[in-house]
Design a binder for these strands. Structure first.
Length: 103
DNA sequence: GGTCTGACAGCGT
DNA sequence: CACGCTGCCAGAC
């Protein structure tokens, strides 16, 4: 499979995010040792998009905004809502409460 | 190799 | 609180 080490590490972390929680591109970047690579993280998720195995909809911006999604932001918000994550005007409500911090 | 891209972050206005 | 700009980084070309 043609996934870089960087991408593999990202996806590993994403798989561990519990239902009903969210984490950020920045937090993921930090977790894999490149805290300034938040942009590259988004790229990695965009390419791989294994929507079933990898809950990439649980990744949001560090300011609580929903951010992007390959299938469309509307879809992302819908899935999050199904998991109990409340959203208003493209922003996650109680962002700090449901933020998943990666070890 | 150099350059461009984008599901970002931070800061100023 | 909303925009806009600049900086950043791994990948794709």
């Amino acid at each position: 499979m043609g996934l870089s080490k960087f991408e593999q590490k990202i996806l590993e972390k994403v798989k561990k995010i519990p239902r009903g929680k969210v984490t950020t591109y920045k937090e993921l970047a930090r977790a894999v040792g490149c805290d300034k690579a938040s942009r590259a993280v988004g790229n990695a998720l965009n390419k791989n998009l294994k929507l079933i195995t990898i809950p990439c909809h649980r990744i949001v911006r560090s300011d609580g905004q929903v951010g992007g999604y390959k299938n469309g932001v509307a879809s992302k918000k819908k899935i999050l809502a199904q998991e109990g994550v409340l959203i208003r005007n493209n922003r996650v409500i109680d962002f700090n409460k449901i933020l998943w911090k990666i070890c």
